[in-house]
């Protein structure tokens, strides 16, 4: 299934969803992940508003009258006796993060590519851990800045001089 993350073991750090922020002026949300072990580190991921809302619903354990998309995926997993083992933010390319969802059934583990927002939404509903690879953590600092700049550019906020600072 997965082409992004080869099945080699990478060192993984566990994170939890700390909060969802609304970014002013843009139709995006920032999902703030924090270290599960309490170490001081936060990892922001920019997502669309619909994706952010899906995560917020799960974070607040809101019961919706009808199953939302990720509730449906969870429901499929239950019907197929598949357990969602863990989700891993496994790669970053051009400021875009890529995730892998690890699922298992009858002792066989499979990997499915996903966007981090879908992976996180599902992890919260399935109560499974969220990991970030050490590799992504090392490569993120500049990508964060790039993402900020890209967002600014897309909304034409500020002048080019400001964006370069």
């Amino acid at each position: 299934m997965s082409t992004i993350n080869p099945p080699k073991e990478q060192s993984l750090i566990e994170y939890r969803v700390d909060r969802i922020l609304e970014e002013a002026n843009t139709d995006t949300r920032i999902v703030v992940l924090a270290r599960q072990d309490g170490a001081l580190d936060t990892f922001p991921i920019w997502v669309g508003s619909a994706e952010g809302n899906a995560i917020k619903l799960a974070l607040d354990a809101t019961i919706t009258p009808r199953p939302m998309s990720h509730d449906l995926i969870k429901s499929f997993a239950e019907h197929l006796s598949v357990t969602i083992q863990r989700v891993v933010i496994a790669d970053v390319k051009s400021s875009t993060y890529y995730a892998t969802v690890y699922v298992a059934n009858k002792g066989v583990e499979r990997m499915i590519d996903a966007r981090p927002s879908d992976a996180i939404s599902l992890a919260l509903r399935a109560h499974c851990p969220i990991y970030i690879t050490q590799d992504v953590l090392t490569r993120r600092s500049t990508t964060n800045l790039d993402a900020w700049l890209a967002k600014l550019e897309s909304k034409n906020i500020g002048t080019p001089e400001v964006q370069e600072t």
Binding site: M1, L80, T96, V101, V103, N105, R115
Partner: peptide, 19 residues
């Protein structure tokens, strides 16, 4: 899309188990 959208993921999930 460059990355799987929610329903593409849903489809991959079902495909992984031949559902």
């Amino acid at each position: 899309p460059p990355r799987p959208m929610t329903h593409d993921f849903m489809k991959s999930f079902l495909d992984a188990y031949n559902a």
